[in-house]
């Protein structure tokens, strides 16, 4: 067992974990945050996307012990009492179907817009290119990211 300390959604956690534990399992099984999904377990689908120090990662491909001292954001960490504008936008343009890809999509969009509020449509498409949606809802998802961009600029 290895001791690891990281900040998840603004809260500091210290846990003793097996050295081979994936960040995905750390989040889901240790912290009981079930919003991060497993779709493939091999870094293809993006359902397990989280933000680590500002960049997106497939948490199924990251060892939890490698996140010592890092700041992780999951879907549970992006809104407080009110929804994040990206979440609002996903609701308003109906960019949610089965919902399994949604947390990852929202986090990929957030990482992009946090870095570049003037992102182009092409950049938006690139930003979510690692997130698969099998309900084929990409058009609505891009519409949602554009709407979120407008909302964030107004703030």
């Amino acid at each position: 067992m290895i001791k690891v300390t990281m900040t998840v959604n603004g809260k500091l956690y210290t846990r003793e974990i097996p050295p081979m534990m994936r960040l995905l399992d750390f989040i889901r099984d240790e912290l009981k945050l079930k919003g991060t999904k497993e779709g493939c377990g091999e870094g293809e689908c993006g359902a397990c996307t989280v933000i680590i120090d500002g960049d997106i990662y497939n948490s199924c491909m990251v060892l939890a012990t490698s996140c010592e001292g890092k700041r992780i954001t999951t879907i549970e960490g992006i809104s407080g009492a009110e929804l994040h504008p990206i979440q609002e936008a996903f609701l308003e343009v109906n960019a949610v179907q089965c919902g399994y890809c949604t947390p990852g999509m929202i986090l990929s969009a957030k990482a992009l817009l946090d870095k570049n509020i003037n992102a182009t449509e092409k950049e938006m498409k690139e930003a979510i290119s690692g997130n698969l949606c099998r309900c084929t809802g990409y058009q609505k998802i891009i519409e949602a990211v554009k709407l979120a961009q407008k909302k964030l600029k107004k703030r």
């Binding site: 009981k32 945050l33 079930k34 919003g35 991060t36 999904k37 497993e38 999951t74 879907i75 549970e76 809104s79 929804l83 979440q87 996903f90 609701l91 308003e92 109906n94 949610v96 919902g99 399994y100 949604t102 947390p103 929202i106």
Partner: peptide, 23 residues
Amino acid sequence: KDIIRPDAYDKIIGKAIYPDDIE
């Protein structure tokens, strides 16, 4: 009318329960 689907809210905040989320 455009309506917001009732299941969407839980899905965007990560609280929708799929079977693997049950412990």
